[in-house]
Nucleic acid binder design. Sequence first.
DNA 1: CGGGAGTCTTGACATACGTCAAAGCGGATG
DNA 2: CATCCGCTTTGACGTATGTCAAGACTCCCG
Lengths: 255, 255
Amino acid sequence: MAQGENGQMSADGMGPTTVVGMEDGALTPEILERIRTLPLFAGLDRTGLAGLLGGAELCSVERDAVMFRQGEPADRFYIVLSGRVVLLVMDNAARESVIEVVKPGDTFGEEAIFDHGLFPFGARVIEPARLVHVPAASFLASLATDFKFVMMMLASMSAHLRFLVRQVGELKLKTTEQRLGSYLLAQTLEGQASATVLLPYDKKILASQLGMTPESLSRALAKLRDVGVSSGNSSLTIADVARLRAFCRESDISE
Amino acid sequence: MAQGENGQMSADGMGPTTVVGMEDGALTPEILERIRTLPLFAGLDRTGLAGLLGGAELCSVERDAVMFRQGEPADRFYIVLSGRVVLLVMDNAARESVIEVVKPGDTFGEEAIFDHGLFPFGARVIEPARLVHVPAASFLASLATDFKFVMMMLASMSAHLRFLVRQVGELKLKTTEQRLGSYLLAQTLEGQASATVLLPYDKKILASQLGMTPESLSRALAKLRDVGVSSGNSSLTIADVARLRAFCRESDISE
DNA sequence: CGGGAGTCTTGACATACGTCAAAGCGGATG
DNA sequence: CATCCGCTTTGACGTATGTCAAGACTCCCG
């Protein structure tokens, strides 16, 4: 299990490497079991999962590795075992914007397989990760044989759609402070009176995800101090969740 | 065929009516054939389609009718035969934002059925429409029996996801003028040197869709005059598509 | 033909947010 | 332990865009 970080953090730290596979290889039984516990694959029995992952490979990738770029052919998707990956869109002026941050247990890139076959966003690793690379072919074959898998897939895409609809609504209707507040509230569990949220990645990335600059994020955090959000180093404490909720609800996207 | 607009534009024009069915009823064979030509249902044979639309109803709805609200249980979806419907999110301050405008041949609301069962957006008719109301149950049954339908469904949702990803990117990276330009370019056909685009709905709605106020839209249009976009009454003419594209590409979301 | 209501435009103004710049801070590396 | 580099914060400033208000245009309907 403690096998992750020993791939030599080798050589060229110069710029993002496009393809990195340090210890590619077949999947161990433990990993197969791990994947079986993920919601998306809950519908698959062991043989179904074996079919899906027949051509799959485990790969360990370092920080800043680019898994694919926007517009590339989508002949595969990924399951995240550990680490984090950002999905982002770019304009041709090389500015980029984070759409989503993918965490262990999530998958990414699978939607593109059904569409016109090109990734609508790029993917870059922001925290050393172990990923399972699944070829599109076996994925499609699995869908054909297992209707429960189909339903899980539809549910997953549907949840994604909801996520994006919400994001669009927030970008259009809420201020920077409210968007930050909403993000924090989303990290808390249901029915907590107060909570401590730890930021799992750089504020720079969070800022991009929330559609603002790092400077604005910093100032937004300062403003939230007025409603009882104290900002530790990389963890924030919400003194009064209800109060923060009220603050955001001044213009909230009612679920 | 000329049977659409005779439902008497009757009585109470007072405020949005929540449910309106002027000539609800069973589907005619012509309508069935029409639906069979839509991309989403291309995979279904006649018996499959009959199964899907067994419990379906035709309904004619007038302008401002609310088909459903955000957060309502999603036990159905709709096929648009004529007219237009806006999908929108609201904040609790009663402000709202248009996510998408649905046109004849499109469907809406089907994604919510797979998720947690609540519509993540509301739907309001902005142009007198004829819709087919399809219950979720028969829809799900059809998916179970026809794998081609499943694939069309996945492709449709995937395209939706791409649409939303693009929208998020544009909101975060582009100015109002560039967003307007992108919208216009999206209305042109591939490889046209110049084009005339007619706006199919109020500028008020377009403004909301593009994430700006009507005033800003008006000014953005004025600015685009400098790059050869002349604005007629409800139709615009792009003198030089390439030039407009270059203008937008100053910060374009490269496909 | 003449209101009248809503849409659209234009203007003046306010402000939220991005930009640029400089100064803490913190974790890596030697 | 010292240094450096990138992240974060704070400040000063400019500007894009929202807000408020008034006028122009369009379409209905009497």
